[in-house]
Computed example of a mutant assay.
Amino acid sequence: MFYALANSRPANSWRVVFTVLLSLLLVLSLAACSTTKEEPTPEPETTTVTVSGPAGEVPTIEFDEPFEFVSPVTEVLWEGSGEKVQEGDWVMLHMYALNPETGDEIRNDYTGLPQAYVFSPKTIGSELYNSLVELPFGSRIMHVSQDKDVTQILVVDMLPARSVADPRPVDKALPEVSYEENGKPIVSVGKKLTKPHELVVQHLKSGSGLQVDEKAQVLVHIAATTWSDSKEFYSTWEKDAGPIRFKVGVDKVIAGLDQALVGVPVGSQIMVIIPPELGFGQTNSDLAKETLVYVVDVLAATTVPEK
């Protein structure tokens, strides 16, 4: 009897317990709803921009008007098929930029020779460097930015500043050419080789670009060595140097180099052996009696207007 009395409850007490539990569940449900995070509203994107046209030509840029800049945007328009660019590589950048708010052209490298740079944040700027790093050569990007309230749409084609054509067989009677990691050629003249007395032009790599005409502007990398001791006396491959540009056939370089470049396709690498009379033979230079070995990467050339 005692046990029965101890475990029995009045009916009203069960109603009280049920009401308390129901209230507690309601409070917990409301608390859970109040802590649910709302989805962030996506930020508006920059006005749609479309870029068309092949590499090597001025790109066509189309966009909605009026153009509204919201935030910087970088887009890889296509990836090239070359090796990935690494810091310290020599690169050529074709750049085209316009102000979409005014329609003014800010920069156009496609009407002449491209610019060559050592690939680093210091030389091309950290923003452009970060947009291009780890991309393969032959890639094109678009970068939309704003500086001091001036908006610009920039299109950049990135090309290697060295010949990447397939190697060709080289006559064993000519000097050997090896390469450093960045592509710089190193010439070694064997002691048993017979020194030629006429101009020799050997294609080490044959490009497929525009052929260099007389009076064309060219952009070239050069490594120049003396035949007598394989000593390099001139190079554009150093970080503080860089590819040089000049007009063919106007006495800007030695005669042997002028003659050798005519007809060479852009993208080629040639070895030119130059006797003294086509080199520095008519000067007071220490190289006046030397036969010279030039390895030349033909990076770019302009067309010569028809007469």
Rank of each mutant, 00 (worst) to 15 (best):
F2I: 15
Y3W: 13
Y3L: 15
A6E: 14
A11C: 04
A11I: 14
W14S: 09
V16A: 10
V17G: 05
T19A: 14
S23T: 10
L25V: 13
L26K: 01
L26A: 15
L28K: 08
S29H: 11
A31P: 08
A31M: 15
A31L: 15
A32R: 12
A32G: 15
S34W: 11
T35F: 15
T36R: 14
K37A: 14
K37H: 12
E43L: 13
T48A: 14
T50G: 01
V58P: 04
P59H: 10
T60P: 02
T60S: 15
E62L: 08
E62N: 13
P66M: 06
P66H: 09
V70L: 09
P72W: 03
P72F: 07
T74D: 11
L77T: 07
W78D: 10
W78L: 10
E79I: 05
E83N: 12
V85C: 00
E87F: 03
V91K: 04
V91F: 05
M92T: 08
L93K: 07
H94D: 13
M95S: 14
M95V: 14
Y96D: 09
Y96C: 06
A97T: 06
D104K: 12
N108E: 10
T111F: 11
L113F: 05
Q115K: 15
A116H: 03
Y117M: 06
Y117P: 06
F119E: 02
K122M: 07
E127H: 08
Y129L: 07
N130D: 14
L132P: 02
V133A: 08
F137H: 11
G138V: 11
H143D: 12
Q146W: 04
V150I: 15
P160V: 01
A161V: 05
R162C: 06
V164W: 02
V164S: 13
A165Y: 05
A165D: 02
P167S: 06
D171A: 04
L174M: 07
E181H: 09
G183W: 09
P185N: 10
P185W: 06
S188P: 01
K192W: 11
H197E: 15
E198F: 11
L199T: 04
L199V: 04
V200D: 07
V201W: 05
K205D: 03
G207L: 06
G207K: 02
V212S: 07
E214P: 00
K215S: 10
A216I: 04
V218Y: 05
A224M: 09
W227Q: 04
W227R: 01
S230T: 09
K231M: 12
E232Y: 09
Y234F: 13
E238A: 13
K239S: 14
D240G: 02
G242Y: 01
P243W: 00
V248E: 03
V248A: 00
D251G: 03
V253W: 02
I254H: 04
Q259Y: 06
V262D: 00
V262S: 03
G263T: 01
V266C: 00
Q269T: 03
I270T: 08
I273L: 05
I274T: 12
I274F: 03
P275T: 02
P276S: 03
L278K: 06
G281D: 04
G281S: 07
T283V: 04
D286Q: 13
L292D: 00
Y294L: 09
Y294R: 00
L299N: 01
A301Q: 03
V304F: 07
